[in-house]
Structures are given as C-alpha cells and as structure tokens.
Computed example of a mutant assay.
Amino acid sequence: MRISIDEHVCIGAGQCALTSPQVFTQDEDGFGAVLTGREDGAGDPLVKEAARACPVQAITVDG
C-alpha cells in the first residue's frame, strides 16, 4: 500500500490524523502529513477510513 497527500488540495481539517494517528499527523502549518516511515500504511486498517474521512479527498491510497 502506498499513501500520499496532495498538499495543494489539503485544507488541514485533521480528519486523517484523528482517524489514523499511527500513520498521519499535521505538519507545522496544520496540514496533513504522512508520518516518516509510514508511507506504506504498515497494515493499519484505518488508513482507508482516514482517506474516506478527508473532506477534500486529498489522500490517495494505492494498493
């Protein structure tokens, strides 16, 4: 699984970090970010739910 966040689309709602805090965080500007080393999702079952929870669909999950 490969996870990415489109930084040009993200509005910083924080739903990703709330839904799957083991994979997502918010950067210093308040926008969503994938934690270093967690770009593959590491089998976290909430990654796809976090992508669905994004109000602007800025998260892409391949795989």
Rank of each mutant, 00 (worst) to 15 (best):
P21E: 09
P21H: 11
P21K: 10
Q22Y: 00
V23S: 07
V23F: 06
V23C: 06
V23Y: 04
V23G: 07
F24Y: 13
F24I: 03
F24T: 04
F24R: 11
T25Q: 14
T25L: 13
T25H: 13
Q26G: 05
Q26W: 08
Q26C: 07
D27L: 07
D27V: 08
D27C: 08
E28C: 01
E28W: 03
E28G: 13
E28V: 09
D29A: 14
D29S: 14
D29C: 09
D29W: 11
G30L: 05
G30T: 05
G30S: 10
G30M: 05
F31N: 05
F31I: 04
G32Q: 09
G32L: 09
G32E: 07
G32C: 12
A33Y: 11
A33E: 15
A33Q: 15
V34D: 01
V34R: 02
V34K: 04
L35W: 03
L35K: 15
T36W: 11
G37I: 04
R38W: 03
R38G: 00
E39R: 01
E39T: 04
E39L: 01
D40K: 02
D40E: 13
D40F: 01
G41R: 00
G41M: 02
G41K: 00
A42R: 13
A42Q: 14
A42P: 00
A42W: 01
A42F: 00
G43R: 11
G43I: 03
G43E: 05
G43A: 10
G43D: 08
G43M: 05
D44G: 04
D44T: 07
L46F: 08
L46E: 12
L46A: 12
V47F: 02
V47L: 01
V47K: 01
K48D: 14
E49C: 01
E49V: 14
E49M: 13
E49W: 08
A50C: 08
A51C: 05
R52K: 15
R52G: 03
R52F: 04
R52V: 09
